[in-house]
Amino acid sequence: MTPRNDWNDRLIRLMDGELNEAEAAQVERELRQSAELQQQLSQLKEIDRFLQRQNKMVHPSKNFTDQVMNGITLPVRSSALSPKMGLMLLFGVLVITMIAVFSLRSGLFDSMEMPIEFNFQSLYFQKLSVPTLSLPFSGKWLVSAFLILNLVVGFVLLDRTILKPYFQRRAEAVH
């Protein structure tokens, strides 16, 4: 703390009556001898006056209570999705799932099976013997993984837009 701020600290505590008798007497003695300290104290008092004067209670609009009372009768929105939007998304997820299942069953992806080979030899390791990396790729697996992910998204949507609001309403009706 700078000497000036150290004095500000002591002067604030003097104003708030937080100094003991000996400390207060010493600060008052210093105050009598220093015009600069007196000016510092008057500045602190001015700040106090400003804060007290400016921080007044303010009142909201006249229809505030009515608006709150109207607001409490509206159902609580438990998710960011509106039920309409949620149902539309759920419908979209179901259509995509059905297309994926139909494609799988019709054998559309059966022919999409091949190994993917990574040959680094020709790129960077011309003087070294590097084995070729080969990974099996299956279109059926890929579509199956997509299908599972789609079902998870569908379940989350079902929960947020239908199940959760339904059980919340039921719980509120019981109380």
Binding site: V58, P60, T65, V68, M69, I72, T73
Partner: peptide, 21 residues
Amino acid sequence: QTEAYARLVDSYKSYVFTIAL
């Protein structure tokens, strides 16, 4: 008796509004 809440709102609306402001 939901309407009783209006009395609580009336009592504290200025305090709550001041804090928010």
